[in-house]
């Protein structure tokens, strides 16, 4: 009973905050509503007995993703008012389409039926033998779903490569360490006898010899042009 009430409470707040995300004028408010939506979703997970997923949702989405959003929204000066114009112009049609889809999905939900063997096929979130759901998740993740898990890893790798490809730039002015050039530099490695107990004041700082300055170019004058 209480679980049922809690479910409708959280679900209601979730939907309401989702609507607010889309409609709020201030983008920072939008992100804050998004965080609220995540929290409620986490609560729904908790009610369903998936406490691990609930925690992950909070940590990853609220802790990292939403905060990142907040940064982006605050750092970039986006003129949301202008973006909103397009939204308003298209809103009536959008509402019609959304309304149609909603009605249809309600129809689907009303006529919903499960396949007879569905219940047996479904993975059970709560294991009967008291295994925690973190452990249960881990068990299937590395056995039955290792394929998907590995592809997920690969996708992340590709995302990383992609990010580097799109953003990394070699600036010609930037100073970088070139180990090979350092080693190859003439006279960079010398052994010197240093008097024992002598301080820097006596020995001085050893500097490798500087390369010779390039000679100024000899300009040929035989042509006898104008000077």
């Amino acid at each position: 009973m209480i679980a049922g009430l809690a479910f409708y409470l959280f679900a209601g707040i979730l939907i309401a905050s989702a609507v607010m995300v889309v409609t709020s004028r201030n983008p920072v408010h939008g992100v804050l509503f998004l965080i609220l939506a995540f929290f409620n979703a986490a609560a729904l997970f908790l009610i369903a007995g998936a406490e691990f997923l609930a925690m992950i949702l909070v940590i990853v989405y609220v802790g990292a993703v939403a905060v990142l959003f907040l940064f982006v929204v605050m750092m970039l000066d986006i003129d949301f008012a202008r973006l909103r114009e397009g939204f308003r112009r298209n809103a009536p049609l959008g509402l019609v389409i959304g309304g149609i889809l909603l009605i249809e999905l309600l129809l689907v939900a009303a006529a919903w039926r499960f396949a007879p063997e569905a219940a047996a096929l479904r993975l059970q979130p709560v294991q009967p033998d008291g295994v925690t759901n973190t452990e249960a998740l881990g068990r299937v993740l590395y056995t039955d779903y290792v394929y998907a898990f590995q592809i997920a890893g690969l996708i992340l790798l590709v995302a990383m490569i992609g990010a580097i490809v799109l953003t990394l730039r070699d600036r010609p002015t930037a100073k970088r360490q070139d180990v090979a050039a350092q080693i190859a530099r003439s006279g960079s490695v010398v052994t010197r006898r240093v008097p024992i107990g002598a301080g820097l004041a006596e020995t001085g700082i050893a500097r490798p010899p500087l390369p010779e300055a390039p000679k100024p170019k000899q300009v040929e004058h035989q042509g006898g042009g104008h000077h």
Binding site: N90, L93, G94, I97, I100, L101, E104
Partner: peptide
């Protein structure tokens, strides 16, 4: 995006 949604609807 709108066209896609209209399409699916």
């Amino acid at each position: 995006a709108f066209a896609m949604l209209i399409g699916v609807a």
